[in-house]
Computed example of a mutant assay.
Amino acid sequence: MDEQLRPINPIRLDKWLWAARFFKTRSLASTSIDAGHVHLNDERAKPARNVKVGDRLRILSPSGEFIVTILKLDDRRGPASEAHLLYTETDASQQAREARRQAQKLAPVFNHPDIRGRPTKKWRRQLHYFERKQDE
């Protein structure tokens, strides 16, 4: 059926989030909405709430925090290139995610080859020694 001829019926929030590829499954989208990680027009929403063009969403997903405006409604999950056409992200949201990504890159990573589960007594002593040296 041609996209121009498809009737635009109300679409549930969880279904739209899934179609826009913010979450891998609809159940993950629904769980995230129930947990309060998705706000519709600055209000906490429910998964069955209908969305419309022009609605503003604040989405906290594993990929980061997104502030988007809905441009199109679609209940089909297509390729990522089509999913990006369903919404527009604010510049502030993009800049905040980029800043978070840069901060994560610059954050020190503490990898020790001997760590497997709980630290040994010897490793704990080395950690305490290191912490005491930092305080001085």
Rank of each mutant, 00 (worst) to 15 (best):
A20V: 02
T25K: 09
D114W: 13
Y87E: 07
R56G: 07
N50K: 15
R76M: 09
V38G: 04
R56H: 12
A29H: 04
L86C: 03
A103M: 07
P7E: 14
I8M: 13
F66E: 00
M1E: 05
N41P: 04
I115A: 12
L57C: 06
R21D: 03
R58L: 01
K105I: 11
P79G: 13
Q95T: 02
G78F: 13
Y129V: 07
N50H: 10
I8H: 13
A103K: 11
R132C: 01
T31G: 08
L5P: 11
H84R: 03
A92E: 03
G64L: 03
A99P: 03
A107D: 12
W123P: 10
H84K: 07
E98N: 01
D91S: 14
R118L: 08
R76L: 13
Q134A: 05
L57A: 00
L85E: 06
S61N: 08
E3T: 15
Q94L: 02
G64I: 05
L127D: 13
Q4S: 05
D135M: 11
L85D: 03
T90G: 04
F66M: 01
G36E: 07
D55K: 10
P7D: 14
A29G: 06
S32P: 06
L5F: 08
P119W: 12
Q104I: 08
S93R: 06
Q4R: 11
P62Y: 15
I8C: 10
S27P: 10
R44G: 13
S32T: 08
H112T: 15
S27A: 12
K121F: 00
L17K: 01
K133S: 11
